[in-house]
Design a protein around this nucleic acid. Structure first.
Lengths: 308, 308
DNA sequence: AATGGGGTATTCATATTCGAATATGAATTG
DNA sequence: CAATTCATATTCGAATATGAATACCCCATT
């Protein structure tokens, strides 16, 4: 097995020769001499075990296989240049667009202030927000960065687990003044409640380990956002994220410790995008801010438990 | 200015050190010795004019800047590996998915047999076809490869001009038996004709240099496909691609040389995708097959001109 | 037909890079 | 607390890659 990986220098010479069409030409642009480049090509052909050029006077013409390798070599070259740019601190584009996808609740209730803070730090980055619960947006490239509630499976994705979002029952202060507070789970059916409509949605909740049935709810809707609005309007008791509940002083947690669930939070992006500065900036920003948000929720949930 | 581009070998050592966390570790995986790797790192830091690691016993920890360079080095590594795979002919994935976008006419009437032939050659490649006339699909990554009727402007795209699609007036054989053939353009209004509905569409045709007005048409619809169906059903005379007309023996060209236009055809894809084998395969296949199709149309148009 | 300018291939002295050996320092372990 | 282990730094002779010079080939031009 002579199969030792060719040195990367060889690739550089290879690319130069392809671009210039001759050993001498390649040597010129690389600032080295023609014999050296010739030897590099020899070495590369030997290492790869295949001919890359048909050598003629007047220059070297790439073989078919050689041609097929060019895009890869060019990719290396691009990456090398990008690295050098990044190293010399030449403000590598914090401009451009970043496309983010998130669920309704996150996208509408949580992200806006977070994205605003990002814009203040990096005003030239345009942000696009795609509200969607589909899980394959990233693979499809419908978005660059996703905030997800499930662990991503694709291996080409870089994912950072932020923590867990705490969810629990809440009610509007006025509602409580009016009808009181349910003391136990069994009490609940006698109070107005906000929950899901379709069986599929209800089953998702049940899978989280909470016994619920459709008839328990007197306001039924599959949109989280609409449920949250009903909650804030004092229609009835319902589930919301603790961190969100705390932002609306009129919402108070109820049944703490009896009707709670957790949702994982992940920030995910394509591996390829790591080389783009604005993508990394946004990814890090989202990860950091979502961490704060998650912690906020944990504190709120703990406080609720203590307070009761 | 000592700013000479660092040799690519240095990047390789850099990446190995980052990955392994130490000079010795990096040296091990590279199959060279620790002093060498150490020298490489020194050289790289000197060339970039900045520190990349904080050196300590127990290993080298990347500095913040060093960390920022890692993704680029990894991109180089990926490309190098891909190049090597491609060189050793190791069937580099002719599997996976390719997403193509094309206009209605092309996507529905032209592509299906072309894509079928591709599937016969590369059965493991799944094909997705997006019917759309939007021109920014590729930049948005809604598709990998596009077939377009306009020259693409983005520089990050690789585009191949296939040729021109010949369009001309046609009529169904039965229709002609029934009402005869218009001999001149001026005759046309006295015959049933199929054409566009909205002013915007009509203007597009007019821009191609043909004097048309909405009132000339007795079947009006903005869908090419529907127009073509009406044509085949013998509703009236109308425009279609010569190559398509020839495929339906009942369609005969009329007014040849008097009511013709050409549409450029381009096959376009993202530059990045050149390194993916299945993408290149599909791109080449589409370019080749579309060339045949275009030529078919040219022959048909010439024949029509001669025949009359 | 000669000539000059493009290219490749070859040779050999030289400059560079590399590896083996070793010194050294900081943790970890018995 | 000494021994061990794992790391970096240093040195120096050997291996290797490089560059300058040169031979040579082909083609276009004069």
């Amino acid at each position: 097995m002579t199969d030792t990986s060719p040195g990367w220098e060889l690739y550089r010479s290879f690319l130069a020769v392809v671009r210039e069409g001759s050993l001498s030409g390649g040597a010129r642009v690389l600032g080295i001499t023609q014999p050296t480049v010739g030897r590099h090509i020899d070495a590369l052909e030997q290492a790869l075990g295949t001919a890359l050029f048909t050598r003629s006077q007047g220059g070297l013409a790439p073989t078919e296989l050689g041609l097929a390798l060019v895009p890869h070599a060019e990719a290396m070259s691009m990456a090398a240049e990008a690295l050098q740019r990044a190293a010399s601190g030449e403000a590598e584009e914090d401009r451009g667009t970043v496309r983010i996808t998130a669920s309704e609740m996150i996208g509408i209730e949580v992200l806006p202030p977070i994205l605003t803070r990002f814009r203040e730090k990096h005003p030239r980055v345009a942000v696009e927000l795609v509200i969607s619960n589909r899980t394959d947006d990233l693979i499809r490239r419908d978005a660059d960065i996703a905030i997800r509630m499930v662990r991503p499976t694709q291996s080409s994705l870089v994912a950072r687990k932020i923590g867990v979002v705490k969810l629990g029952f809440h009610g509007h202060r006025k509602l409580i003044e009016e009808v009181g507070v349910p003391a136990t789970l069994e009490d609940l059916p006698r109070f107005p409640a906000v929950g899901f409509d379709r069986e599929a949605s209800i089953r998702r909740v049940r899978d989280l380990g909470v016994e619920v049935s459709r008839s328990m709810f007197s306001f039924r809707c599959d949109s989280d956002i609409a449920q949250f609005a009903a909650l804030r309007a004092g229609f009835g008791f319902g589930v919301c994220q603790y961190a969100l509940g705390r932002r609306y002083p009129d919402l108070v947690p109820v049944l703490s410790g009896k009707l709670n669930f957790d949702l994982d939070v992940w920030v995910v992006m394509h591996e390829d995008l790591k080389t783009s500065r604005r993508m990394r900036l946004m990814f890090d920003h989202l990860a950091e801010e979502m961490s704060l948000y998650v912690r906020e929720g944990e504190v709120a949930a703990r406080d609720a438990l203590k307070a009761q």
